[in-house]
C-alpha cells in the first residue's frame, strides 16, 4: 500500500508543478495557455536524452528547464500581441507542433518507437527507498516552486501581472509594457513544466510522443479550476483532488457490489466524469476560491 501511495504522490506532485506554472500564467496574468503539454514534452525529452548519453541528472534537469523556457520565448514574441483567445489557439497549435516534431525527428527521438530504459533518479538506492527519495526530491522542488510563485505574486512584479490580467489597457496607460511581462511569465511557467517533464521521464522511464497529447494540458486546467484559479494553494489542492478522483475510483469495486470486473473500468471513467461535473456545479469557484473574480 505504501509504495502505491508514494507512486500516486509522485504523479500528483508532477501535476502540482504543471499547475503552478499554469497558475502563474493564467491565474495571475490571464494568459490562456492551451499548450502546456508542449513544454512538458520538451523537458521530458531534453533530460531523458542527456542523461541517457551520460550527463548527470542535474544537467538533465537544468537543460529541461532551460530548453522549455527558451521554447516559450519566441511564442511569446510572435503571439502575445494577439487577443487572449487567439493566444489560446497558438499555444494549442504549438504543443501539437512539438508532438509532430518529436514523432518525425527519428534520429534524435527514435520517433514513434519512443525512448525506453530512461534511468530512474537515485539508481543506487533501488526499489522502495529510491521511490521515497524521488518523492522527497520532487516534494522539495515543488515546495520551492510554490514558495517562489507566492513571492512573485506578492512582489511589485506580481501586482503588475495581476493588473495586466484585470485591465491591460490601464496598465499600458500607466506606461508599462505588458508584452514584456507576459513573456517573462510565459518563460517561467514553461520552465516549471519542463522540470515536471524531466521528473515524469525519469519516473515512468519510457517516453513516446503519443503521451504528450492535449489531454494532459486539460488535466492541468481541470486541476487549477477545481482548486481555485489564481491561488498557489488552489494549484496544489486541485491536483490532489484530481488524483483522488482518478485513483480513488479504482477502489469503488470494493464498496459497490454487482458490477463485473470488466464493466468496472468503464463505470470508473464515467464516475470520474460525474464527480468532476458535480464538483464544478457545487463549487464553481474551486475549493480555495477564485481570485481572478474578486
Amino acid at each position: 500500500m505504501e509504495a502505491y501511495l508514494v507512486a500516486i504522490g509522485i504523479i500528483a506532485l508532477i501535476y502540482v508543478l504543471l499547475s503552478l506554472g499554469l497558475t502563474l500564467q493564467y491565474g495571475l496574468t490571464g494568459l490562456i495557455n492551451f499548450g502546456h503539454v508542449g513544454f512538458f514534452a520538451i523537458g521530458a525529452y531534453a533530460s531523458a536524452l542527456l542523461v541517457l548519453n551520460g550527463a548527470p541528472f542535474i544537467v538533465g534537469f537544468a537543460a529541461a528547464a532551460l530548453l522549455a523556457g527558451v521554447a516559450a520565448w519566441p511564442i511569446g514574441l510572435v503571439s502575445l500581441r494577439l487577443r487572449d483567445d487567439y493566444f489560446a489557439i497558438v499555444t494549442l497549435g504549438f504543443s501539437e507542433v512539438v508532438r509532430i516534431v518529436l514523432t518525425s525527428e527519428r534520429w534524435l527521438t527514435n520517433g514513434v518507437q519512443g525512448i525506453p530504459g530512461i534511468p530512474r533518479l537515485y539508481p543506487s538506492l533501488g526499489g522502495a527507498t529510491g521511490q521515497i527519495a524521488t518523492f522527497a526530491t520532487i516534494l522539495a522542488v515543488t515546495v520551492f516552486a510554490a514558495w517562489m510563485i507566492r513571492r512573485i505574486a506578492r512582489s511589485p512584479f506580481g501586482r503588475i501581472i495581476e493588473a495586466i490580467r484585470d485591465n491591460e489597457e490601464a496598465v499600458q496607460a500607466l506606461g508599462k509594457d505588458p508584452p514584456r511581462f507576459k513573456i517573462q511569465v510565459l518563460v517561467v511557467g514553461a520552465a516549471l513544466a519542463g522540470i515536471a517533464g524531466a521528473f515524469y521521464a525519469h519516473y515512468i522511464t519510457y517516453i513516446v510522443p503519443e503521451q504528450y497529447i492535449p489531454l494532459v494540458t486539460f488535466y492541468v486546467w481541470m486541476a487549477i479550476i477545481m482548486g481555485g484559479v489564481g491561488r498557489v494553494s488552489g494549484a496544489v489542492i486541485g491536483s490532489v483532488i484530481l488524483m483522488v478522483f482518478l485513483e480513488g475510483s479504482r477502489f469503488i469495486r470494493d464498496v459497490v457490489p454487482g458490477i463485473s470486473e470488466v464493466d468496472m473500468a468503464s463505470v470508473r471513467i464515467g464516475l470520474v466524469g460525474l464527480l468532476l461535473i458535480l464538483f464544478i456545479i457545487y463549487r464553481p469557484q474551486g475549493l480555495m476560491g477564485d481570485y481572478t473574480k474578486r
Binding site: A3, Y4, A7, I11, R250
Partner: peptide
C-alpha cells in the same frame, strides 16, 4: 503504471 503499482502493492 499507477494501475500496476496498485495491483502489486
Amino acid at each position: 503504471v499507477l494501475a500496476a503499482k496498485k495491483l502489486i502493492d
